[in-house]
């Protein structure tokens, strides 16, 4: 029953493309024949704040929200956001973290400090972690905008969806002129784990 539900949490900062990544994942699961439910936050939270998208799929899915400590995969486009939402991940889950720091306005204004020991904290929080440079990889492929799909490629290694479902999902979700870039970004990310 619910044990067969797969839960994924994708986090980042407003504007990084979390919503597109979650859409591709949801489509890939749908194409694979699963029932899918996702949730995202619009409005105020999108203005430079932390963004969370939750995706769940399986033969029968009830809740669109992921219970804490149950996600199979946590994908983070910004590294301290991975720590912020670490409690969603199951103890044996896979964390995929983009090694990128985006400084919150609270830090740039001097009201808070960005932690210096992020990598060691990530290693302590996540026994199973892929720590990758999605932004740089995306830039080398042609556009930093594809960092979200590089990350998703790595996330896909923690899930059980077939490769062709992912490719079909990417084709259905991105504009034609960015299709090849994103397909390549996905494959590159998939090979990073």
């Amino acid at each position: 029953m619910s044990e067969s539900i797969r839960s994924v949490v994708l986090v980042g900062v407003g504007g990084q493309g979390i919503l597109l990544a979650s859409e591709v994942l949801a489509r890939a699961a749908m194409i694979s024949g699963y029932e899918v439910k996702t949730n995202e936050v619009h409005g105020m939270a999108q203005r430079g704040g932390s963004v969370v998208a939750q995706v769940r799929y399986g033969p029968r899915v009830y809740s669109p929200l992921v219970a804490r400590k149950t996600a199979q995969v946590l994908g983070a486009l910004e590294q301290i956001e991975a720590l912020r939402f670490a409690d969603y991940l199951a103890p044996d889950g896979l964390a995929v973290v983009n090694a990128q720091a985006i400084v919150p306005v609270t830090v740039s204004m001097g009201a808070a400090r960005y932690p210096q020991d992020v990598e060691s904290r990530l290693k302590a929080a996540f026994p199973r972690m892929a720590y990758l440079r999605a932004a740089e990889v995306a830039r080398s492929l042609g556009s930093i905008q594809a960092a979200n799909i590089v990350l998703l490629g790595a996330v896909s290694r923690g899930l059980d969806l077939p490769s062709d479902a992912w490719q079909e999902a990417i084709r259905a979700s991105v504009k034609e002129k960015f299709r090849d870039l994103n397909l390549k970004a996905f494959e590159t990310g998939r090979c990073l784990v």
Partner: peptide
């Protein structure tokens, strides 16, 4: 629910 040291992370409010 696990208790994690969230308070040491800098907040990222919408701005």
């Amino acid at each position: 629910a696990p208790i994690l040291p969230r308070e040491i992370l800098p907040p990222r409010p919408p701005s």
